[in-house]
């Protein structure tokens, strides 16, 4: 029975990720239109809400081209890996507390492994393989350059991301995402905010910037910089293989929003949650609240995309190595001093 619930949860989370990724494309176009004072897609269905279906149908029906000199097998593996690594990150995120239906207790988390954060980190570090393999297999200069940029960018920002997480771990004292979410219970605790964003403001800022870089979102979308590299790593891709790359980016955005909401913004916790006495109601509101936080982050991703212009490549490296990493190390030292002398 346990297994059936887990499988159902996996399927539901998978479908939700796909649905959110689909509607992120619509939201992106609507947000862009709003910020640029346009109308945006409004033809397919009321307010254009069927637009993602139309786009998806178009993607499937386009002709599929595999370049003659490309490495056929790796050319197909690239986008598959990209979408796979994007999807497996959701396994350790606690989507809510326990739900009790009759005699069954359903845990709204697929796997509560006690190295949850490191698992997320590992999945993020694998994400670059899809781009690198696809870019290399295309046998195209621009694709290769995009792939190389993606690799160096990911590795550089992974370091700063890891260091910013270390400072967070010094506060929480655990690597399990479930326990981190539980520690941020409610909103106000022991005379201070319970959410980690208020305990680790600098750590959160660093993590946010690195999340932008790791998901290849603007202003760090150098791997697909069309002014320099045509289409970047997916120049040679067409049809649904291109669709997978684009989809993977939106799923990555969704997962990293979920991670940020869980690590820094209390996950499924919300203010005054102790005043509701039905445990199931708290759980359901908690899930809704978590998704509201995730949508807020996704909106933030889009807002930044249409506000800040793209970095130049050397600026990107300077920011990563000369600003973010020293700041992250300073943050670790400050957190260490604080835990030893003030809290200790």
């Amino acid at each position: 029975m346990e297994l059936i619930f887990k499988l159902a949860l996996v399927v539901v989370i998978f479908l939700i990720s796909l649905l959110i990724a689909m509607y992120s494309t619509y939201a992106e176009r609507k947000v862009a239109a709003f910020l640029q004072d346009r109308v945006g897609p409004n033809r397919a269905g009321p307010w254009g809400i069927l637009q993602p279906l139309a786009d998806g149908g178009k993607m499937f029906l386009k002709e599929e081209i595999i370049p003659t000199n490309a490495n056929t097998f790796l050319f197909i593996v690239g986008p598959s890996l990209a979408i796979m690594t994007a999807c497996i990150g959701s396994a350790v995120i606690p989507w809510g507390q326990k739900l009790t239906i009759g005699s069954y207790v359903i845990d709204l988390q697929v796997a509560d492994i006690n190295v949850g954060i490191l698992y997320i980190f590992g999945v993020v570090s694998l994400g670059v393989y899809g781009i690198m393999i696809g870019g290399w297999a295309s046998n195209n200069k621009y694709s290769l350059l995009g792939a190389i940029r993606a690799a160096s960018q990911n590795i550089s920002y992974e370091i700063a991301m890891g260091l910013s997480i270390i400072a967070l771990l010094m506060v929480t004292g655990t690597l399990s995402l479930r326990q981190i979410a539980e520690q941020q219970h409610g909103f106000w605790q022991n005379g201070y905010f319970a959410w980690n964003a208020f305990k680790q403001p600098l750590g959160f800022l660093l993590f946010l910037v690195c999340a932008f870089a790791e998901t290849n979102r603007s202003p760090f979308d150098l791997p697909e910089c069309e002014t320099e590299l045509v289409g970047g790593y997916h120049t040679e891709y067409s049809s649904m293989k291109l669709g997978f790359y684009l989809f993977a980016e939106y799923i990555n955005m969704f997962i990293s929003s979920a991670v940020m909401a869980t690590l820094f913004f209390g996950g499924y916790n919300f203010p005054f949650m102790d005043m509701i006495h039905s445990a199931n109601l708290v759980t359901i509101i908690g899930v809704v609240v978590l998704f509201v936080k995730i949508f807020a982050f996704i909106f933030f991703f889009m807002w930044v995309r249409w506000t800040i212009p793209r970095f130049r490549y050397d600026q990107l490296m300077d920011l990563g190595w000369k600003v973010l990493i020293p700041l992250a190390i300073a943050n670790i030292i400050l957190t260490g001093l604080w835990t030893t002398f003030i809290r200790g």
Binding site: L118, G122, S125, W136
Partner: peptide, 21 residues
């Protein structure tokens, strides 16, 4: 998980990176 992150996620990416160049 460290083997996963460090070897698969970083060192081999760098190997691949150098090979591509």
């Amino acid at each position: 998980i460290v083997n996963f992150i460090v070897y698969m996620g970083a060192i081999l990416v760098l190997f691949l990176y150098t090979l591509m160049l």
